[in-house]
């Protein structure tokens, strides 16, 4: 009698315990990711500094992303110019276009879109590369040589991302503001002086600093998630080998993109 009651209770609690398990899993995973990042970050400063590796990674994450950042920045600015103009013209305040474009780029679109572009370009590649190194035992090989794989593989990437992201964001912002100028002034005939005057007067250092902090936060999120997914490819339950790498790459891109947007919201609510 008592036993059946207990069983019934257990069945009733099944969904609850499933949620609990899931929550514990998520919390543990978060903890692991945080530890992974902190270790990797601290190891950047361990001597001797791995300058050539960091430069190599900046080349990969930053330099090679310039083209895609310029393109997306230009078109984002241009479309903002178009949309903003037709919205503002209804209120007779098209003169504010410069402010609208500059603020939305510097505060939001610059950091977010450049982070997403870098995820697609470099983040996925990072996850795949590290994942392959994991499954072909290259990471184990590093360990047997007493080379710390975190220091050797992850730290240069974290350093490079922390350097590259703000710079890419700045490039995105500047190109975007000029993109807005292209549609707003050249195409739709707002006085360029007013456009830039408005952009200048409306943007505060606070906005620029906010965008800068965001880009740093996104750098941390993207590089940590992508490296983490690759690094622990072998622990995935869904698939091993090449399939595991493909899962890792996919989840690296998806998770880091979503997290970028979530972190963006949280940071915006703090910065405003």
């Amino acid at each position: 009698m008592k036993k059946t009651e207990q069983n019934a209770l257990a069945t009733a609690l099944l969904p609850a315990s499933a949620i609990g398990r899931w929550a514990i899993f998520i919390i543990r995973e978060l903890g692991r990711i945080a530890i992974f990042f902190v270790k990797g970050f601290l190891l950047i400063f361990s001597l001797p500094l791995q300058m050539s590796k960091i430069i190599e990674q900046i080349y990969f994450i930053g330099t090679k992303s310039i083209l895609v950042i310029c393109l997306t920045g230009a078109f984002t600015g241009m479309v903002l110019g178009l949309q903003g103009y037709y919205t503002l013209v209804k209120f007779g305040s098209e003169g504010l276009l410069g402010a609208a474009v500059a603020l939305s780029l510097i505060r939001e679109l610059g950091p977010v879109l450049s982070a997403i572009m870098v995820i697609g370009r470099a983040g996925s590649a990072m996850a795949a590369e590290i994942g392959i190194m994991r499954i072909s035992e290259q990471i184990d090989a590093l360990e047997t040589m007493d080379i710390n794989p975190l220091r050797f593989l992850i730290s240069p990437r974290i350093a490079a991302a922390l350097i590259s992201f703000p710079l890419l964001t700045a490039i995105f912002d500047v190109i975007g503001i000029f993109g807005g100028y292209m549609t707003g002034s050249v195409l739709l005939g707002i006085d360029p002086a007013i456009y830039f005057y408005r952009a200048q007067t409306s943007v505060l250092m606070k906005d620029i600093a906010g965008g800068f902090y965001k880009s740093l936060a996104f750098a941390v999120v993207v590089v940590t998630i992508c490296c983490f997914q690759g690094y622990y490819t072998h622990m995935r339950a869904e698939g091993f080998g090449a399939k595991g790498v493909s899962f890792s790459t996919t989840s690296a891109v998806v998770i880091s993109s979503v997290l970028v947007l979530i972190v963006d919201y949280v940071m915006t609510s703090f910065l405003i």
Partner: peptide, 17 residues
């Protein structure tokens, strides 16, 4: 301890990059 060791992997585990 690790300095004294070397390991030859079955799949070679060479760094391919």
């Amino acid at each position: 301890f690790k300095k004294k060791f070397s390991y030859v992997f079955q799949g070679t585990a060479l760094f391919d990059s």
